[in-house]
Design a protein around this nucleic acid. Structure first.
Lengths: 367, 367
DNA sequence: CTGAAAGCGCTTACAG
DNA sequence: CTGAAAGCGCTTACAG
């Protein structure tokens, strides 16, 4: 599964390119880059042999031939042009990552981790931001199929006709964070959202928050729905059942706005809850800002729990408790799901962790 | 300059794909996707004709022929496979964006804007995070050349042998935010950093901050150097010249760490400055956290100015003043630089704006 | 207005 | 161990 860029030979060639190319100006090659033909000519072998050496096909070239070819590759600074191979092999080294929202630092972190892991497998990642829009998602799905993408990773899929279609057609799809909105589909990489929701409930109740609320994003996201379900069930079990009116969202597409607006509603109803679970950090940010405007302080006046635990939280949101998803682990897990042997686990559950930054307020305010 | 995906015909074909493909199972086509040959066969024309229709070559097909071809495209859900055209045309629709740090929300915002603008031109963006590392940057440059990337956008370039080489060879490079570290190179898209630095100095001095400091990132970045130069010059002009010891950085790669560590140094020296200019928001975040640990509050005890004005600042850093760069405008500007006619401006200077969120403290604390 | 054919740069059976 | 040749899916002069 190791691709060209990490084949030892090719790698050496690539690294040496810049150092050596000064010797022979690019003008030597009819069309800029040196092609496999120029390497073959220089090494005095056939292009088939060069191809085998480049791809590390074992026991197919004598030591001397291999050495000569490598030498030529080094001297010319040869790197195979992808389109040639792609055409021949009917598949490219491109992997598409469709993310629902790049503005979320946690998504950006996962995207970066995925990129690094895929690169280590010799793959190239194309990043697309669907903004959670079905039409954009379909546009990208189509475009990536035309690119012969080896796999399409959906970091937060949304229901769309194109997705349903491709899923049915057996396109290589990897669902991350959210499950497929179109019936069971694997591979899937994510965390145990239900359990995380449970833990958040335990945290808030354990801290003495009797008056709970949840502010959530679209329930079409399996992640959101599972977080909420876990939270509700555990809160009920602990004797703090949530009335329906304590579970709210807002008709906004941006999580920041959802948090802000939902918090406005909560405040309008009177005294703020003592513990609020926001199903994403961005929602928590929005809610927090509204609280500030109201003169309320976190965690002095209430406990706020977010989700994802954005890498920046440590720096800018010390007032926020949050469930940390292991961004970096997503990279290798995604790469494995793509490269994976057919018998590999279809479902990867990564470990999450509730990060508690705040101390419980010494006592409840008495206004 | 409008590419295939936005050709009206092809677009329609693409959109209709999912609706129609149910009629004819994929198995009809020997290798999954329908090829130009299957369209030609179905329409009863040559593949040359199909190609012309798909690419909208004017006056090269009768109305009836065009209609028949479009019909076939619709029915089969045909989308040209990129590798074929790439190979033939010796260039692809891929544009690489090499960013220095995706964890910076401002960079992520620019990347997202670039992606949208490029997509509107029928291009596909590959995103790579160089982490400001020369070796990684070179690795990516090489990989993207092998992909026949139509252009490589460097959002925060760092000096590297490979970059110097490609610049010399006339590769299509677009420098964004930071200028080329290897001599003048265009196109360049950025803001007037020197002037922004000037404005920050005026802001701080105007607010009565007599005791100024700067915490900056690597000066090899032209953006950082220019910001600093503008700030120094204006501070001096206003009679608040900075002593060398008030200009500091830290030996860390992460801006968050730089801010934290540099602030530690400042605090160790005694009373904190009354106005601090951090050359990035992340540096400001790091500095702020250190201040919090010290029991200092912003803006009560001092004014902090960052740079970039991260989209999240409104929500999580109401204590921070910052220079906002117009993220969204970067997208079209980058797209123009790539598609641009040769006589297009080689340099695009986008407008920035100092965002003042904080009120000056009513009076200086008297400890 | 339309088509036959060359060729882009690779990989990979197939012979030898 | 090595090479000649076919073919991946396109575009584009060139003829007609």
């Amino acid at each position: 599964m190791r691709g060209y860029p990490f084949d030892p030979v090719a790698r050496k060639a690539g690294i040496a390119t810049f150092a050596r190319m000064t010797i022979r100006p690019a003008s030597r090659h009819p069309h800029g880059q040196p092609s496999i033909a120029s390497v073959a000519a220089r090494a005095g072998v056939s292009i088939a042999t060069v191809s085998r050496v480049v791809n590390g096909v074992a026991n197919k070239a004598s030591a001397e031939t291999t050495a000569r070819v490598r030498q030529a590759i080094l001297e010319l600074g040869y790197r195979p042009i992808s389109a040639g191979r792609d055409l021949r092999q009917r598949s490219s080294r491109i992997v598409a990552l469709l993310t629902a929202n790049l503005a979320n630092p946690a998504m950006a972190a996962i995207a970066a981790a995925a990129e690094a892991a895929l690169r280590a497998d010799g793959l190239v990642m194309v990043l697309c931001d669907t903004h959670d829009r079905p039409d954009l998602q379909d546009e990208y799905l189509l475009a990536m199929r035309a690119q012969r993408a080896r796999a399409i990773v959906l970091l937060g899929a949304v229901a769309s006709p194109g997705l349903a279609r491709m899923q049915a057609e057996g396109e290589t799809l990897v669902f991350v964070s959210r499950r497929s909105p179109h019936g069971t589909a694997t591979p899937f990489v994510g965390i145990d959202n239900r359990r995380a929701g449970t833990e958040v409930a335990r945290h808030l109740v354990g801290r003495g928050c009797a008056d709970l609320a949840v502010v959530h994003g679209a329930l079409s996201s399996s992640a959101t729905a599972e977080r909420l379900a876990g939270f509700r069930a555990e809160a009920r079990r602990l004797g703090c059942a949530l009335p329906p009116r304590a579970i709210l969202s807002a008709a906004a597409t941006e999580h920041l706005e959802i948090g802000y607006q939902a918090m406005s509603v909560l405040l309008r109803r009177g005294r703020a809850p003592t513990g609020i679970f926001c199903t994403s950090d961005l929602i928590a940010f929005g809610a927090h800002r509204r609280l500030l405007e109201e003169g309320l302080a976190v965690p002095r006046d209430l406990t706020l729990v977010g989700f994802d635990d954005s890498p920046l939280n440590d720096w800018v949101a010390p007032w926020l408790d949050s469930v940390r998803v292991p961004y970096d682990s997503f990279g290798p897990a995604i790469a494995r799901a793509i490269a994976g042997s057919p018998d590999a686990d279809a479902e990867t559950t990564l470990p999450h962790r509730l990060i508690v930054r705040t101390q419980p307020p010494p006592e409840r305010r008495d206004d």
